[in-house]
Simulated scan of single mutants.
Amino acid sequence: MPILSTITQRSAVLGLLGLGLLSACETVIDLPAPEHTPRIALKYVLSSYESQNQKGNDELANSRNLFVSNSQRIFDNRENKGRQDATVVVLDGSGAVVERFEHAPPRYPDDLGFYRPTMGLKPQPGQTYTLRASLPGFESVESSLSMPAAPTIESATFVKNDSKSNPNDVYGQLSISVADDPRAANYYVAFARVIDSKNPDYQGWSQVQVVEDEADTDVTSDLGRFQLSSINSFLGYSYGLYPYADTNVNGQRFSLSANVRYYPGHCQTQNNCQGPDYMEVFVSSMTRDTYNFYLSRQRYNETEGNPFAEPAPLASNIKGGFGLFGGTTDAIYRIKLP
């Protein structure tokens, strides 16, 4: 018998024996599904920001829209879609309804669960608001908050790097300085975008991004560093969300400096060019619950795919349900672009 044939036969026999041994050692454990009562799950960030974009592609506005769904069992692998049959209202401190919502038309077949306001509420800093939501067959939920005061942006500058910029990207250094209010515990997030002040439909997708090859990827929001976030991160599409608490800078001035880039626009024809003329720097004050939610989501993203990571549950402030009723007040500083 040829040597190769003998080795092959022996390998096959050993392989079958190995499979038999592995099968003999295999143990099947039935994990009982935890008790679960389906509850309403939602996310809404109350703010006075009003989009001028008529095309629906304002990422900042989209990140704060109301979304309503419901929880499902831990072993349920079906896609959890949004609900379009919710009733949601916002009440002021006196109990009067100051905002109602209607389901937004889907942009594609599964684009369900997003709602738009109908009464044009402009929340005021220091005022208390309560959100109440109901779905057929579910226990109603609610949550309350007090709107934070607007931050104070002392200065913001952008210095273009001409040698690095090109027709597809403008590079430069963005610096922001903020004065903290010593009378309260404050929670911030900073981000920026470029706009065409003559064309509101340009704003929305034109975010300013930290240059990836120069970003300090080892620094996370846990270290308490004031960093520039990206608008996309509020939607959960990226990891660049850095909520910041004034724990170590109460009543002091604090700042950031980041190497950034943005898309400079394009020319549809030789005489029809669309591009930004201002950079808008946002520093937003958040409620403590909003800060905790974003911080927990950042930690959740950082544990993705790691089977040895500690559990990173999302924070929630919805009584009787899950999710976030958040509040944020923006301060905006405009920089004229060169």
Rank of each mutant, 00 (worst) to 15 (best):
R183T: 09
S63M: 01
L223A: 08
L145Y: 00
K122C: 08
R334W: 02
L14P: 09
Y333G: 01
G137N: 00
D246F: 11
L324A: 08
F138V: 01
D289Y: 04
G321R: 04
L324V: 09
P34G: 09
E139G: 13
S5W: 08
S284R: 00
L21D: 04
N186G: 05
S69G: 09
A61N: 04
E102V: 07
P151D: 00
Q209L: 13
I153L: 02
Y49W: 01
S155H: 01
N77G: 06
L131Y: 02
L256C: 08
D180Y: 03
Q84R: 10
H36A: 06
V219M: 06
Q209D: 15
Y115W: 10
N271L: 06
K43A: 04
S175C: 00
G113W: 01
Q268H: 06
S285Y: 00
G15R: 04
R116I: 13
F325G: 07
Q124S: 10
Q72P: 12
I195F: 00
V249K: 06
S71K: 11
F138Y: 11
L228S: 11
T37V: 13
A258F: 02
Y262P: 08
A215M: 11
Q209G: 09
D201C: 06
S257C: 06
S197I: 03
L324W: 03
D111M: 02
K319F: 03
P2E: 12
M279V: 13
V88S: 12
P200N: 10
N259T: 11
S5R: 11
V141Y: 00
N77W: 14
R183Y: 00
V97S: 01
F67L: 11
N232S: 07
Y187K: 00
Q274T: 14
L91Y: 05
S255C: 13
K81A: 12
M286N: 01
Y278V: 15
K164T: 12
L16G: 10
D216E: 15
S221L: 11
V219L: 12
F67N: 05
D180M: 03
N80S: 12
H266G: 11
N77Y: 07
S69T: 09
E280P: 02
N232H: 14
Q207H: 13
S284A: 07
S47T: 05
Q227H: 14
P136A: 09
Y115R: 10
D201Y: 03
N80C: 13
V28P: 08
R73K: 07
N292L: 14
